[in-house]
Design a protein around this nucleic acid. Structure first.
Lengths: 195, 195
DNA sequence: CAGTAAGTTGAACGATTGTCCAAGTTGGAC
DNA sequence: GTCCAACTTGGACAATCGTTCAACTTACTG
């Protein structure tokens, strides 16, 4: 954003960017472990193994740090969504797998995203970032239907299913998630072998 | 919960219960204004117009206070849901109206509920309370369909739509919400004037 | 080589926090 | 009336917080 995108001639700046990324990752680790409320300059610094003042050198205020962390998370998520859109045959099934992760190994990650998004609703600077998350799912849905109501339904259902898995805290069934998503897109499509 | 339900012979205890309720309400006011992160014994005490130590007298720890606040919120919400189930003709429309409030006057309230629910995902003691919220919507949906998938879809969609309104931060259309909800319940019911 | 900007460090500031405690006040029990 | 439990109060404790600062190291520029 400050210089040419790809050109990093200065090795010092290169190391700086790397440090910056490390601090963001440490921040996300703290959010996963202790929640957004646990994010303090000191906690992040300890997690990253650096002195406190180095954290404030890169992110003068705690808000800056949270914005950067949420942006990083949103980037990762939209990347995965795009991956599904480009590669997956059954895109709803791909989305379902992604959602089901929230009940298993990706639980802490999903929780972290959720907390940061909740934070976003109160800070105007974070709102566009939080919106990006949903737009990814909307793009996926747009490849399946032209009905804007159906797109909205898929986005809402995805979000709600994720919440359900986090609160229910029980093993999730990808097929069930897929079925509920299919209901949102409205098509009476896939085989339902009958129960 | 501690004594006989209706019998409060001791006037001192009666005043105590009233104070307790006041403190909970003050807590919710703080959450609405500053978010869950803004809840401190001191902030709540100032909001309620009482000394700090009185807040700790009724809620020894901050967690106790948050549990009580979330429970109170959940009670209010389930009451409104039941009201819709009992009285409303078109129950989905009633649910839609309730959801649309999140974009208008009830925004801060919805945000507060959301923050407390997010908190719940991390504290086992709060999980049953957060679940109660969803069970209300599930009961409403159960009056409309027998398909468990459809019930899950309505619950998920309601939650996701609420999130959308909070993040989008734009005026909401109750009919649109109603349409998306109808899609979840699966019935090819309402008029669809064609594409 | 010197010059300089980026990166790094430890210490410190005042402010706020959760929680506790000993002393008061109130009002029902008897 | 006494007695006691509930309620109320102000003050205090150590701990942690965000942020700032001056000094130091590194490594690129010229």
């Amino acid at each position: 954003m400050s210089d040419q995108p790809g050109a990093t001639v200065d090795g010092r700046r290169a190391r700086g960017q790397k440090r910056r990324a490390e601090i963001i990752e440490a921040t996300l680790a703290v959010v996963r472990r202790d929640g957004a409320a646990g994010v303090t300059h000191r906690a992040v610094a300890k997690q990253a193994g650096i002195p406190v003042s180095l954290s404030t050198y890169y992110f003068a205020t705690l808000d800056e740090l949270l914005v950067a962390a949420l942006s990083s998370v949103a980037d990762g998520y939209t990347a995965r969504i795009r991956e599904i859109v480009d590669q997956h045959e059954d895109k709803l099934a791909g989305l379902a797998e992604l959602i089901v992760e929230s009940a298993g190994p990706g639980r802490e990650r999903a929780l972290a995203e959720r907390e940061l998004c909740t934070l976003a609703a109160r800070r105007p600077a974070l709102m566009p970032v939080a919106r990006r998350w949903r737009e990814g799912v909307a793009e996926l849905a747009a490849t399946l239907t032209d009905d804007p109501d159906a797109v909205a339904a898929v986005v809402a259902t995805s979000d709600g299913l994720c919440t359900a898995l986090l609160i229910e805290n029980a093993p999730a069934d990808a097929e069930h998630v897929r079925a509920v998503l299919g209901r949102a897109v409205g098509a009476p499509r896939t085989r339902r072998p009958g129960r």
